[in-house]
Design a protein around this nucleic acid. Structure first.
Length: 228
DNA sequence: GCGACAG
DNA sequence: ATCTTGTCGC
């Protein structure tokens, strides 16, 4: 079931070693522009909900209008995950179902936002980068928890941020989307810079810590899962 | 060797 | 990720 916008097909690897091979090969395709991208009218958020004690899961792709934060379109896909959760290899667990959910959208996504990381990853190729490369679309990640790198606590006000880095290498930002609330961790995935990813993250999260596209994808995937 | 470890 | 309601607090 190759998605209509999938540029690079996905195969589930047989083991961790094969997954890391694929990761290393695809990573070479990542492009991170220094210039701002064309401001998108919509952003498509992605997330997956899992059933307890089984491999059943539901993915949701939710396209949100940036200016209004309204939902424009929803695509979902139920299925069975075929790769275990391994830190650093999350993409191999989630990508098949995410691609299926994206397939259900009529309008091709402009910019993708994932629950997780882009290049802020042990091998600089997290879920957001992986999906961006497969679809050849701009993508970035917004994670709720830290993974790698260190950062200074950002200012307490909404919109303030600090660099997430490993040594001299800037991997992302800890971004305050709500005043006085724990920051989210933003990283570029593919074909987008950190400044754009940060700006979109803040614009898309007005009432809640998590930006609307991934927040709605979380809510909808969870609802569809329990209704199945 | 011992933890830590996106979702 | 997931099991789970109300409740305390800003």
């Amino acid at each position: 079931m190759t998605g209509k916008w999938t540029v690079v097909p996905h195969r589930t690897p047989a083991d961790v070693a094969e997954a890391e091979q694929i990761q290393a090969r695809l990573r070479e395709r990542v492009v991170l522009p220094a210039e701002p991208i064309e401001p998108p009218v919509t952003v498509t958020g992605l997330d997956i909900s899992y059933a307890v004690g089984s491999e059943r899961a539901v993915a949701a792709a939710v396209t949100i209008e940036v200016s209004s934060r309204d939902i424009l379109e929803v695509g979902t896909a139920a299925g069975v995950v075929s790769f275990p959760y391994v830190p650093g290899l999350l993409a191999f667990r989630e990508i098949p179902l995410l691609l299926a959910a994206l397939d259900r959208l009529d309008r091709p996504p402009e910019v993708l936002v994932c629950d997780g990381f882009g290049i802020a990853h042990p091998r600089r190729f997290g879920l957001a980068s992986h999906l961006g490369v497969l679809l050849d679309r701009p993508s970035f990640g917004v994670a709720k928890n830290e993974f790698i790198g260190t950062y200074a606590e950002p200012g307490t006000r909404r919109g303030e941020w600090s660099e997430l880095r490993e040594g001299d290498e800037v991997l992302g930002r800890a971004v305050r989307t709500r005043t006085g609330v724990k920051p989210v961790y933003v990283s570029a995935g593919h074909r987008i810079g950190l400044a754009d990813a940060t700006g979109l993250t803040v614009r898309l999260s007005t009432r809640f810590r998590v930006p609307e596209p991934t927040r709605q994808a979380d809510i909808i995937s969870r609802r569809v899962l329990r209704e199945s």
